[in-house]
Each structure stands twice: as C-alpha cells, then as structure tokens.
Design a protein around this nucleic acid. Sequence first.
RNA 1: GGGCGACUAGCUCAGUUGGUUAGAGCACCUCGUUUACACCGAGGGGGUCACAGGUUCGAAUCCUGUGUCGCCCACCA
Length: 909
Amino acid sequence: MAIESKAYQPEIVEKRWYDQWNQSGSFKGNPEAGEKDSYSIVIPPPNVTGMLTMGHVLNNTIQDVLVRNARQQGMNTMWLPGTDHAGIATQTRVEKELRKEGKTRHDLGREKFLDLAVKWRDKHGGIILKQLQSLGASCEWERTVHTLDDDYSHAVLKAFVDLFDRGYLYRGKRMVNWCPVSLTALSDEEVIMKPQKGILYKMKYRIAEDPGAFIEISTTRPETIMGDTAVAVHPDDPRYQKWIGKHAVRPFPEAKIPIIADSAVEKDFGTGALKVTPAHDKLDFEIGERNYLEVIDVFNPDGTLNELAGEPFVGLERFEARKVAANKLEELGLLIEKEDYDNNVGFSERADVPIEPRLSEQWFLKYPKVEEAKKAVRDGMIKFYPERWEKTYLHWLENIQDWCVSRQLWWGHRIPVWYRKGEDRSLPENWHVSLEGPEDPENWDQDEDVLDTWASSWLWPFATMGWPNGDEEKRQGLHTFYPTSALVTGPDIIFFWVARMIMAGLEFMGPEKKELTDDEIRERIPFHHVYFTGIIRDKQGRKMSKSLGNSPDPLDLIAKYGADGLRFSILNVAPIGQDIRFSEENVEQGRNFCNKIWNACRFRQMSGEFEDNTSLQSILSRITPGDLDDVDKAMLSRTLQTIAEVKEAVDTYQFTVITHKLYAFFWTDFCDWYVEASKTKLKDETTKATCLAVQDFVIRQFLMMLHPVCPFITEELWHLMGYGSENSFIHDVQVITAKEVQEALERLGVDKLESAEQSIQALRESITSVRALKAEFNLSSNKSVRFLLQENKDFSELISEQSDNLKNLSGIGTLDIVSDTPENMPVTVTPVGSFYLDLRGAIDVDKERARIEKEVQKLQGIIKGIEGKLNNEGFVANAPASVVEGAKKQLEENQGKLGQLNAMLSKLE
RNA sequence: GGGCGACUAGCUCAGUUGGUUAGAGCACCUCGUUUACACCGAGGGGGUCACAGGUUCGAAUCCUGUGUCGCCCACCA
C-alpha cells in the first residue's frame, strides 16, 4: 500500500473502514466483565424519525471521542444506541399526513391509526442511526433500543405500576397546561414563556346591592368573563372593604357573583380588584378552591367557546372571542380604557400556540427520591461539567412540582390502568392498575391516554439493559455497564431528562426503599459524569432550526469536508459550557488539517522505505542515540509533553484543548519545524535512519492521540505507514503514557530532552528573526545572501552543530562568524547572536539608523519596565524566586540586545 | 422579580490556582510555485482585555458597582 493521491480523499477512506470496524466486533463491550474497568455511555436517544443536525454532530462526536479513548485505554467499552418514539412530535407528523387526505386520527380509530404510525416510523425511522454511522459513531449497534420495543415498553409499564403501588402516582382533577392544537395536557416543562404585546382592559362591574356603584377591574383576557364566578380583592385593601361580602354583576351572561377577599390578590396591580375565573387560570382556580367558588368552563378542548359562554360567543375561536367581548363591554359602557401591555404568555413547546390553563383529570407523579437526587449531585457523586449547571439542577429540585404524566395521545405507552365500566373514574375503588390487566376485562375500560415520552425515557440508562428482567439484565450486562460512565447532553433537557433519570435510577436500581444511604445512592445513580454541551447557533447567534433554514445538513458537510474534518472542527469550536457560533468556514480548518497530516505522511513515504514500524519498540530500536541531535531531542520532548497534555484534556472534557494542542503540535512543531529540519538530515546517510525513525515515532504517537477525534484518517494512515497488521486496528493498540514513553527512551540512553528543547526554541526564534530581516530588505527568496554572525557564546556549540539547518531554514548563503561589530550593516539581535546582513555597502544609512532606533526605543521601554519591577522592594520581597530570577534574566537579555544595537548604530556612517 | 452566562485583534474564540512583551484560526497586506502539502510556505499589520472603582509588589485573571447582549426560572390578572 502506498500514499498516492496528493490530497486526502475522505470519501474513499471513510467507506473503507466503518464496516470493517463494526463487523470485527470492535464496538462490542463484554457484558460479563464486571464493573471494574468498564466504560459505558447510553446515547441520548434521538427522535426515531429525526434527521441528523449539527447538535447531534457535536453531541455524538464527543461521545465517540470518549468511548474510543476508553477503548484505547484498554477498557471494556460499550456505547448503547437507540431512538425515542417522541410522542407528540411523531403523532403530529402522522396526523399531518392524514390531513392531506382530509382525515383525522378519529376517522381511523385508535388501532388503525397506530398501524399507520408504526408504518410511518418504520419507513422514516432509524435514518438518523445510519447518519450517525457516517459520522463514525462507534456504537454497539446490535444493542439498538427503541422506546416502543416490547421489552422497553414492558419496563415503562412496570415502572408505572411500581410507582403506583409505592404511592407516588395519583389521579386528580387539577389545573393543567392544555395545548388546544395537540389536544393534550402538557407538563410544566413543555411550556415556554414568551413575552407578548397585549392589551390590558380596564373595565367595571356593577355592584348588585348598590345601584349606580361600580368596581373597577383589569384583565388581559376578557374572553373569560363568561366564566367569572367572583371578584376578589385583597383583605387589607382599604378601598374595597365596603364591598367585601356584596356582589358584583357579571355583564355577560349576566349574573350576580360574590366579591370576596383573598390575599393572593396584589393590591398594587391594576385596580387591585381581580376577576376570578377558576376554570381558566391557575391562580383563580386556587382562589376558587379556598372560597368554594363555582367553576364554569367556557372553552372547548380546541380553544373555541362552548354553550356556557352564551351568545354571541358560542363557537368562536378564543382570540376572536376576546375582541367580541371587548366590543361588547364597550357597547355596554363598561369599558374604561385599553392600555398596551407587555406580559408573558405560556406557549406549547411543540405546537407554538398559547397554552390554555384547563381543569382536567390526569395522572400525576410525585417524584421519588428527590432528596437523594439533590444529594447525589451536591455531594459530587454525580459530577456536572461545567459545574455551574448544578445550581440550575438543584434549584429545580428545590421547587419541584408534581409531574403530569398522562397525555391525550395515542402514540406512546398506554397507561396500564383500567376503570370499572360506567363508574366514576375519579374514585380509586374503581381503578385497576397492573401489567396484565383485570381478570374480567369485559367489565373494565382501559385508560385511553398514553404516558409522557419523558416518562419512558427517564428509564433509559437501565431499561435499555434488560431491566426489569433478571435474566436479561445478566445477559445484557446491567451489572457491568450500570452506572454508566458519562452522559453527554444539552442543558436544555436538564429537567426533562437528566434530573428525572437520576431519580428513576435511585428509585429502581435496587430494592424498594424510602430513604437511601450514601452508599446506596452511589450504587444506584445512572451515571458518574454529565457533560453539558453548548447549543449550536448560526453566525448571527440564532438557534439553528428547520424553520429558519439556517442549519446546514451535516451529511453535506461530511461529503464536502470529510467526517474527520467535521468532527475535528466541531470540537475545535465548542468550548466547555459555551454556546457555539457555527459557520461552514469553521469546517475548512478540520479538512485542511487532515490534508496536512496526509501530506506529511506522504512526505515520510517519499523520504525513504518504511522499516519495521509494527511496534513502538521496533521503531525505537531503529534510533541510534548517538545520532540524535538537539533538533531530534526537542521533537521527542514536544511529543512527550503533548501526550501528557492531551490526556489531561480528555480526562477533564476540554475538547477544544485537545484539538488545539494536536493542531499546534503537528502543524507547527512537526511539519513547519521538524520536517523542514529533517530535509537537511535526510541528505546525510549517517543521520537519515535515525531521523526517519524519529518521524515514524512522532507520527505513530500522533495518530494514536488523534484517533478518537479523527478515526478514519488515522486508521487509514496507521495501515499505510505500516504501524498495524492487516487484521488489526489502531484502536486495538493500547495507548501508553508520556512517562512510559520517556522511560523507554531513557532505557535507550536518550536524555536531556528539555534542555534540547530550549536550545531549539532559541534557534527557531533566531531563524524567524533572520527571515524577517531578509523580508524587510526584499530578499526573502534570495538564498545566496551573506550574513555575519556575532555569536552568543552560550550557543556556539549549537550553531556549529546546526549551521546547515540554520542556513537552509533562514535562507543564508554564506555565514561568517565574526567577533567585532561590522560597519554599515543591518542587524537583527537574536537569542543565538547578532546577525548582520551583508549588503555590500548598498545600504541606506539613514533608513537603517531609523529602523534600529525604533528597535532601541522599544527595547528601552521594556527594560525600563523590568527595572522598575526589580527596583520595587515589594516585588523582590514578595514575588516567588523563580519570577524574580526570570525578570533578572530577561533584563540581562534585553540589555545585551540593546548593547548590540547601540554598537551597530555607532558603526553606521 | 430572581438566577446564570458572555463582553479580549475586522470576525469566531483560547488565555486552568494573579507573575516575562495577551495567543490561535479565519480575514487582510507583502513575498514565494526550492521535488509533502496553494486544503501550501515565509514575513507583516491589527488589541487602553466593555466601563468605573478597589485589593495586591504585580490584575484580562480576584472583589464591588455600572452598562450592553443572551439564556434559565417565576401564578401580578
């Protein structure tokens, strides 16, 4: 095999490897290995009919980096994939299709509709999993779980029954968030508050007992007047004392309603008097309960008005009714004024219409293990990255409200509750709750509703591994892979999913218990770490969404830039805890990097035959320690450092650090410097073999480090460079630490790496300065220029050793070492000495003087600053010795530089 | 109304316990096709680190306040 093409072609390479990995069983974990040395992640299940978005790309790239890294560490690794049935979203899609034929789900009936939904799912479903594969996701695909699978569904219902038996579930008539479009109740978390420009209507109701007197009331919702059953004022409000206990006249339908006192009323808002509509407002409902008020529901489920509203409102849509009601008030002379008003209105997350507070009978869950869930995070048994989300999490748990888990949908897990036929469903004696159903089904009706999708996905970390079937748990390795190692998700579902999974784990991953000890909490938590990604936004900072059309199709990006390029780039711009502004230009960097790697390897191939590259040891044994110069040693030193830095970054979830370090290491240190310097060495047969071995070593370790981020190109090059045999993979090779590599080098007799790195750093800086001086005189591409060098004595050995490199890399034709300052020559003062550009007298003395004087001025500024510091007693007394030493050294260096420049100035004529 | 986050080069962002002259990528300017790579190489310009105080020998970094933007939570109709 050989590296042929001039540019890296990801489409060919990616196709080659994915199936091989998957078929070889590389992605499989061993369920029997036990918890020790196991690493597991469960995927946040995407909607089964969803398409890959940039959010998925980020999220799953991170997970893939984590599991691939774990495999390289030799851990028993398992990444479990799956999909979510996504109740409302999927049902809405199917209903939309139906509507095209002019039908509703009710025309079909439950069974036929569900058949259709299943067909829809099977046709459009699972595409996203294929898309994840083209991204390179190394999931154990044989374990793919869908939340409506039989086993998973059984788990969901079992959890429901258990929670009922344990007293956490109850059915009650309560105020819920009703979506008039989806026609279902929603949980509080599914309601999005949005600021709205509305109108505050100020109106007046007659006082029944006192003709001619009125009470003034403010409302934003005149369409609910028909449901008013009281007017409430604050008990301490002096203005209204005289009316408490009397009656107001509701204008339409006209009726006497009591004026009551309730401390929930804000005295300072509006007129201080509140119309109370218990059926259509949560606060009003509570006031109604306290004061035994009648509840009049004037709305139909779809948000139109019903007969109780009376004419002319019956059948009107709610916002239309608002206008009609306002007009009617005006006609009756009861409207005082209309005022523009900004307020917050709850919207249905899915349907994006204002929700309607509505009284209905639903199933509610009182959350289990709330205190333990707080403790788990507060005490660090579960760690959040970044930490600050702990506050958000704890705040939510402090103020937790019961969870409305029933949904008036068909697509989902049907609630395992049966009601005695014809009896009152609100009475517990008429309920049957079980997995099997009642023994006399003819006498019972099953609840029509399904469970909230999140009431199934909150079991994800264990219901995907065989729970609650003991044999299956064992077969699938629940004891091995639970608790999972890390969860990677967005902070937007911290309440929906993360918090609930923690509570579910604490409740179910052990025998029933009211309270848990710390050790039990530790055993039951669903994951050890939670990494919260940022949210991907577009260039303008807007959230990516289908409706805005600002979300690029990741598959297009993969086709254009390669999966590795995309993976590298998304990590490179996604710092921990920050939202990400993404634009396609970002991806170019990743693609370019892959291309750079490809070509560096191609250069290595062109430089000489590959020797035995099959193990680290075989490569190291090709190094002759005596042939290593400082350039080689500096490269080895950088490699060791980078190995350590990248490991640290992976362990602390600093993904941008990983990419930045690898990029700088490979591009700057290896390609721009070492490979360029190699060109000198490769011409010399005595140093060539060692130099190639160093290159092979660096590339090998680099590919291993990069592999979790860019699996495809690293696998390809791994084989092309002869690092692995045909039937093995790069991830089969366990990584070793920087320390272990260093020890291996020391055994070879290779040492003094750090001092070599410092020398080479000085040399590199010097070369840059020489190049800059040449550029200033438009001589960049002239290779035959003569320089005179006044050496810095500390570096004379280095200079003689590296004189070829120095000349080649800075484009010097002739280099003469001198001891005196020459006359009339432009100079650059560098760490290794002063370089004088021999222009054979063709020099503009005034210009040159000006140039040097500018430089002198700059240096004087720096020197003054350092001197000021050193003359400051406080600094010398308090700063650490190393910092003071550093300052002294710096002063010395700059003074030396200044002296050189002044010497040159005196030689300018 | 409470809470959280951001503000550093034209743009997107690094800057980990305070310590040399604040960095990267892109964009820009100049030069370059020397046999890895133009998805390239060399050099360069560009920042009063949002603002105001404070702590300190020393602040982009810590504290207090202000401003702008964003997000989350919250039953003022």
